[in-house]
């Protein structure tokens, strides 16, 4: 099966199918709704129903005329003589791995993936494959993340402590994925939550998918709320946070490194990610049983070398790609 790695995305020529392309194409598989995967509008889109719901919020009217095909998890469909099946990837709500069975070959494209169960969303299913296309956002043995139980405990304890001190707990969390997870665990623990509008717009999709957020408020941006504030990091600089009146935590895979403090201004680092940490990633690759692996995002060269040393036929295809927005 021909797999082309281009600056536009990954192209399966035999199926005329693009995987997470960056620009408009005739037919595309969208693994999940982060911008660097779902930034473009295509004529025909295959994705899970949850991903499509998030995708609609992002692109609105621009999707008019596009054929959006909702794909249920675990149910195969046919395309150009191939059998395609979506499996949960944990990452963000709706994230899916795509298994392509074609003339006896099993090709698995993970998209962005997490192996440990997430705070919100379905647990990842491991899928057997001959050939694997996998990401390596955290593909160095320095990235070790909290489990969801540990993360829940840290997030809730941080917010409660700050509120008891009379300060506003600010949780820097990516607007799609971590922000909803943080809001969900805080709401479940009975901590009042205010959510920045950029993240709040996705909350109803999460609630509908079975992750309710009772009692959250949308933050109006005028004053510090008397609640935990969930704020996407990209708004950190444009928001006034008087140092003595807030505590800032950063919830991200990048919070595994102390240098995250200098970059984000956060005191508390909570290394919880919607990506696999290093050991998880290795475990995931091994669980697929794939002998041939293409590493397509993050520390591609380093992770491909590590896989090669473990006996895989691993490559890091050269592929200019815009900066990812997740982590």
């Amino acid at each position: 099966m021909r797999v082309e790695f281009t600056g536009q995305g990954i192209y399966l020529a035999d199926l005329d199918l693009w995987l997470d392309p960056h620009h408009r194409q005739r037919r595309a598989w969208i693994s999940h709704a982060h911008r660097d995967h779902a930034g473009a509008v295509h004529e025909e889109v295959y994705a899970t129903a949850e991903t499509l719901a998030l995708y609609r919020i992002q692109h609105g009217g621009a999707l008019e005329g596009a054929a959006l095909r909702a794909v249920p998890f675990g149910q195969s469909w046919e395309l150009c003589g191939a059998r395609l099946t979506a499996y949960p990837a944990a990452h963000v709500l709706g994230a899916a791995q795509l298994l392509v069975q074609w003339r006896g070959l099993r090709l698995l494209y993970t998209g962005d993936v997490k192996l440990l169960p997430p705070l919100c969303g379905r647990p990842t299913e491991t899928v057997r494959a001959d050939r694997l296309i996998v990401e390596s956002t955290f593909g160095l043995p320095i990235f070790h993340f909290l489990t969801r139980e540990q993360a829940r405990e840290r997030i809730v304890a941080f917010a409660r402590c700050a509120l008891e001190e009379g300060r506003c707990p600010v949780l820097l969390a990516h607007e799609l994925g971590r922000a909803q997870e943080v809001a969900h665990v805080l709401c479940q623990a009975g901590v009042p939550v205010a959510v920045h509008p950029a993240a709040a717009r996705y909350l109803p999709v999460y609630a509908e998918a079975g992750f309710p957020m009772p009692g959250w408020d949308e933050w109006n941006g005028s004053a510090l709320p008397e609640a935990a504030l969930v704020l996407p990091p990209r708004f950190r600089a444009s928001v006034q946070l008087p140092r003595r009146r807030v505590r800032i935590a950063y919830v991200s895979g990048w919070a595994a490194l102390d240098n995250a403090r200098a970059r984000t201004g956060a005191e508390e680092l909570i290394p919880y990610s919607d990506h696999a940490g290093f050991e998880e990633l290795l475990e995931l690759v091994e669980a697929t049983g794939a002998r041939e692996v293409d590493v397509v995002h993050g520390y591609t060269g380093a992770f491909a070398r590590i896989l090669t040393l473990r006996g895989k036929l691993a490559r890091a295809p050269e592929r200019p790609r815009p900066e990812g927005e997740n982590g």
């Binding site: 160095l140 043995p141 320095i142 990235f143 070790h144 595994a256 490194l257 102390d258 240098n259 050991e279 520390y299 380093a302 070398r305 590590i306 040393l309």
Partner: peptide, 26 residues
């Protein structure tokens, strides 16, 4: 870990003490 992985890890962390703590985890 191989020397290249270690060197890259130290560079990404930016502090060799912190990097060693992380590389020795587990």
């Amino acid at each position: 870990w191989d020397a290249e992985t270690v060197t890259l890890s130290i560079r990404e962390v930016g502090d060799i003490g912190e990097a060693i703590g992380l590389l020795m985890r587990g």
